[in-house]
Design a protein around this nucleic acid. Sequence first.
DNA 1: GCGATTATTATGAACGTTCATTCGAAACCA
DNA 2: TGGTTTCGAATGAACGTTCATAATAATCGC
Lengths: 196, 196
Amino acid sequence: MARPPANVPPGQVREKIIVAALQLFTQRGYFNTSVPDMARTAQVSVGSIYHHFKDKEDVARALYLSLMEGMQGELSRIAEAQATAHDRCRAVVAMLFELTESSRDAMDFMLYAKHREFLPGERPVCSSQPFETMRDFVQQGMDRGEIRHMDAMVASACLFGGALRLITARLDGVLAEPLPDKLDLVWECAWRSIAA
Amino acid sequence: MARPPANVPPGQVREKIIVAALQLFTQRGYFNTSVPDMARTAQVSVGSIYHHFKDKEDVARALYLSLMEGMQGELSRIAEAQATAHDRCRAVVAMLFELTESSRDAMDFMLYAKHREFLPGERPVCSSQPFETMRDFVQQGMDRGEIRHMDAMVASACLFGGALRLITARLDGVLAEPLPDKLDLVWECAWRSIAA
DNA sequence: GCGATTATTATGAACGTTCATTCGAAACCA
DNA sequence: TGGTTTCGAATGAACGTTCATAATAATCGC
C-alpha cells in the first residue's frame, strides 16, 4: 500500500495539486485550465497528477468536496457556539464575509463556479449540505417564534440573499470596501425582513 | 450544395444561430458546446456560422448583448410606467419572476452563466447596465425618502438579493412552485428590510 | 424584359492545434 | 529487491477555424 516518503508527508502532493487547481480554476476557469497548467503551477509532473487522481474532473471534485466539508465544519461550530436562530444566522453571515476576504479563491469556487458544467452528477450548490444547514437554522427560528412563519425557502433566500449578493459583488471587484465593514448594516436589513 | 429558401429575410440565419446557441449554452454550457453542435441545432452549416460571426465567442457575445438589451428595455418600460421607487422595484421583481418562468434559458444565461470565462473584456453581470439601473431606482428611492439612507450597493443587494436567490433556486430545480406564487411574500420581506 | 456578370451567402471536408490521458522507464523508499 | 511514486514524451481524439466550391441574389447593359 501507499508508504509516506520520509521527506514528503503523505498527502502533500495531493494538497499541492488541489491548491494549484483552486488558484487556476478561479483565475481562468476550469475549461481554460489544462492539466499541464496544473502540473506547472503545482510544481509536479503531469503523470503525478494522474497517479493521485483519476482524471481532471476528479481533481475538481476533490477540491469541491474538500471546500464543502470545510464550510460544513464552520456551520457545525456555529451551531454549537450559538443558541438562537438570530445569533446563528448572524454568525453565518459574519463567517462568510470574513472567509471571502481571507480565502477569496475558495469562496469564489464554492459560490460562483458553475459546477454543473464540469462536475456532472454533483448537486447544485443551493441544495448542498451547507445550504441545507442554513435553511435548517431558519426553520428552527420559525419553530421557536423568532422568525415569522412562512415558506422556509423564501425566508432563507430573504435572510441570506442580500449578503450573498454582496459577496458576489465583492468577488467581481464591484464592491471596493471589505465586506466585514458592511456586516452590521446588512444584518440589520436582513433580520428586519423576516423577524417576528 | 447551398439551398436556402428563396424568401429568407435578412438576419433570420443569425437569429437561428443565436437561438440554438442560447439553448445549448444553457443546457450544457459554453465549453461543452462545439461549433458543429451549434450548426446541427440551428440547422445551418458550420461555414455559415463563420460567415455571420467572427468566431464562437462572437456568437456568445451577440447573444449576451441582445439579452441585456432586452432586459434594459423592460427596465425602461417600468421606469416610464411607475413613479415611486417602491412601485418600480416591485415591478422589477415581478418582471424577473415572470421572465424566469416564460424564458428560462434567457434568464439562466443572463444571471447564472460565468461570462468572464468565455467573454473576456465584458463587464461582470452585476456592473452591467440593467443592474446599474436597478441601483438607480434604489438611490432615487433614498433621495425621495422612501428608503432609509444607507450605502446604495448594500440597499440594492438587500432589496433584490432575496428575489435573485429564489430565481437561482428555481433555475436549479430546487424550488418546485412557479416564482410568481412567491412574489407577494418575497416583496413584503424585501421592502421591509430597507423601507424608511 | 433578359441574359451576363458580380456579390453575397451556404456548404462541409480538410487542416493544424490543443488537450486529456497513457505508459515505459527512472527514482525513491522500505 | 519489490512496491510506490515521479516523470514527460508520445498518442489519439476533439475542437475551432479555413477555404475551395457552389448555389443564390443583385446589378447591369441593352
